[in-house]
Design a protein around this nucleic acid. Sequence first.
DNA 1: CAATGCGATGCATTTTATGCAGCAGTAGGG
DNA 2: CCCTACTGCTGCATAAAATGCATCGCATTG
Lengths: 297, 297
Amino acid sequence: MRHNRIYDMIEAVHRAGSIRKAAEETNITSSALNRRIQAFEEEFGAEIFERLPRGMRLNPAGELLLHHIRMQRQDLARVHSQVADLSGVRRGHVKIACSQALLPYFLPRQISIYRAEFPGVTFSVNVRDRIQAERDLSNFESDLALVFEPAHMVDFKILHAVHQPIMAVMSRAHPLAGKTELRLRECLEYDLVLPGPQYGVRGLLELAAQRAGRKLEPVVETESFEMVRHYAAFGQSIGFQIPVGLDQLARPEMISIPLSQIDVAGGELLLGHQRGRTLPVAALKFASQVAKALSTR
Amino acid sequence: MRHNRIYDMIEAVHRAGSIRKAAEETNITSSALNRRIQAFEEEFGAEIFERLPRGMRLNPAGELLLHHIRMQRQDLARVHSQVADLSGVRRGHVKIACSQALLPYFLPRQISIYRAEFPGVTFSVNVRDRIQAERDLSNFESDLALVFEPAHMVDFKILHAVHQPIMAVMSRAHPLAGKTELRLRECLEYDLVLPGPQYGVRGLLELAAQRAGRKLEPVVETESFEMVRHYAAFGQSIGFQIPVGLDQLARPEMISIPLSQIDVAGGELLLGHQRGRTLPVAALKFASQVAKALSTR
DNA sequence: CAATGCGATGCATTTTATGCAGCAGTAGGG
DNA sequence: CCCTACTGCTGCATAAAATGCATCGCATTG
């Protein structure tokens, strides 16, 4: 929206940290930008930036204002979305923050299904760990978050929750491959490949191991769930993953077996948005599709 | 805010019903205003007005947008208020919709007390019946509503509630003046002066009368609570009022006696604001003062 | 059928925003 | 201790945008 360009400028200065840097990115001269900022502060009745020798930083008033700006921009997007919806054409853009587990199969499929019906809707998918995903919602950078075992849950309004047991992933040639359920102690006899400590799966496993008086000593620790799966499928190691991250179609070389609920209770995969906001139509529709898919899988 | 003038223009056109009328009130030519509207619609991506032969009317998209505009303006006012508050100076403006009963003593006193502490805060007080008061909140025309027995309560978030029995008001020379509590049937022996049917007091009395198999036949029916009080004090009639509308100091010529709770249970005086919004600092502080005053009277 | 009120538009003018060049001030490095 | 690099700020000429005026076409109204 052109008439609110001053808001974009304020955000640009905030991001860039100085008028001159922000000026480049805004395609405007620093003098013009400077005067716009000054004029705005004049009209607003208070300074919103601290002038430091190395640039500009938002003061508390500016923080307050920035939050308002983001709120109002988001709400305008919702209005746009609703207007598009009532004209019959479904347009819009949905921004999703999700954990890695959703990337290989679940989200691509869901987005593809949704876009088959509403080709006017586009998507941004950002991989975030559970902490970052929540921050994304608070910062207005995502409409929806789809995360396993979120941490704080402030500002997080749950739209849908589904329980996810922990699955052990291994090669079909693995000695344990024939079982239908595994105990944790069985797995600990073998090499483990685990995600880093910031991930929910790891947290749940650590907890279970501690309770059993054991300690997890992974031979491979990685940030990539893909690495976990493929390393496990390749060698004699055992990896772990939640069902939503595993292909519904069985893979020839890989098998997944649930861990006994006695050892590891599993966790919740949550779909949510920022508390207190009204979602754009597209995001809302997509969320309800995802919720349905999650509960019927 | 100058940079959002287009929003004011849209509202002006909406109110005036035509560009030319709105142009006068906006101190601008109709052509300029026309082009601003057109430019906005272009940028917005949809028409927001229907062009009728006699003027302009908001279409559904426009209604949606108008709501957003009002929301965002209100939220900006809150930001302003919070900014003023963190700079130490308490400034701001509080818009109150209240029923007539609050006018003679209660609100003037409360506002005066508040302004003694924060002279930078100004007030608008609008007299509204309970229906209109709620509409005022929904339309963003008031921050707070203080009403007796509100009707719908949609969009109405209760901040404080206090029970109010119905008081009979009469001259000290009245035959019933000596009693400490009155039954409804006693009152019905005399001439009644009552507020119109849109008021809560009347509704409660009608209900009580109906239950007793009687009918209210006022000799004077008026929209003015002041009229009720003074007519009752003057002649041999009985008027009715809630305690908050009566002077705490006894008046020489007038007396008020509670109706028995057996006959008329009384009703709730509610302080509230629009559901889902964050009040400006000044309105919030004033509301908490009023709540305190209501509960300790 | 004329009168009235409406939104839209072409064109000249005024107002506003922008770009350019240069100022003063501060932080960091040799 | 000075020098460089970076900052925000400002005077002035210019470019861009908004506005006002006059007018058109259209639909309703009396």
